[in-house]
């Protein structure tokens, strides 16, 4: 069912001084699939996302999007290609009202502003754009808070807002870095439902420590350890793999649920 390769890293590495945070990772993502990445703290998952999305270039290796080498492309152009991400520590704009966080994302993805002059001098909340943003907020379930100052949102709502920002960009590939971290049980249900709805519609990559939740969501699981991608495959198989159990839970196989 998954289509051709859409995003790919070839022997991508990233060093911070002496530390090799990502170590020649070969990774392929097929159009329409949902994939998960797990691994203990400090395994290099976030760093891998960072080089995929262009926060910084890899120290070695290349990144390809739909066959095009994007290794040295800036982050904003990658967003233009349809690669959108969220951050492990929620990153929204606290000083703006909730709705304003979405406006620029919607503008970037849409066609409301035909030219730069309109972008610079036109109103920031034309009716249709505002409606579109409200719909996106509706999707993540915080529509009633659209006028609230973002700083006043709970952490969970901020997370939902960040996902809404990503969705407003109409992504082709969506990379979520620990979308469940720091959420209450109820909020986890909400966000899981949201991701389940996205499954199949867009290409989805999720880093998550809550492995049991992730296993139900994705069709392929990759495990990172000390910068390397050590194994990948179907979630059930991966979770039963002794090597994975060893690096992740330290040998014994008592529990399924993990740290935070």
């Amino acid at each position: 069912m998954p289509g051709e390769v859409i995003l790919e890293s070839r022997r991508a590495s990233k060093n911070f001084g002496d530390l090799t945070a990502v170590d020649s990772v070969d990774y392929q993502l097929r159009k329409g699939e949902s994939a998960g990445i797990i691994g203990p703290n400090g395994a290099g998952k976030t760093t891998f996302f960072n080089i995929l999305t262009g926060l910084f270039p890899p120290s070695a290796g290349t990144i390809h999007f739909q066959g095009q080498d994007i290794t040295n492309m800036s982050a904003d152009l990658r967003v233009g290609l349809g690669m959108v991400r969220t951050f492990q520590l929620v990153s929204v704009f606290d000083t703006l009202p909730v709705l304003d966080n979405l406006i620029l994302a919607a503008v970037r993805a849409g066609t409301e502003y035909k030219n730069k002059v309109q972008f610079v001098l036109g109103s920031s909340h034309p009716g249709n754009l505002e409606k579109e943003c409200k719909n996106t907020l509706e999707m993540v379930g915080i529509a009633e808070k659209s006028r609230v100052l973002t700083a006043d949102l709970s952490y969970g709502d901020k997370r939902k807002l960040e996902i809404a920002m990503a969705l407003a960009l109409k992504p082709e590939v969506l990379l979520l870095d620990e979308p469940l971290a720091g959420l209450s049980d109820l909020e986890i249900i909400d966000v899981m439902e949201l991701m389940n709805n996205l499954r199949g519609k867009i290409t989805l990559v999720v880093i998550e420590h809550k492995v049991s939740q992730l296993a139900g969501l994705v069709s392929r699981l990759s495990v990172m350890h000390e910068g390397r991608l050590i194994i990948e495959g179907e979630p059930e198989k991966i979770l039963r793999d002794p090597m994975v159990r060893r690096v992740y839970w330290g040998e014994d196989d008592s529990t399924d649920e993990t740290c935070n």
């Binding site: 904003d76 967003v79 233009g80 991400r85 704009f93 406006i103 620029l104 610079v120 109103s123 960009l169």
Partner: peptide
């Protein structure tokens, strides 16, 4: 007033708060 109430105005305030994040909204800051 036109400048600051436009999408550009929001963009400036976003740059003030977190410029890197704005790049991940697809803007060449």
């Amino acid at each position: 007033r036109r400048l600051t109430m436009s999408p550009f105005g929001i963009l400036l305030r976003m740059i003030k708060e977190n410029e890197t994040r704005v790049q991940f909204l697809g803007y060449n800051t």
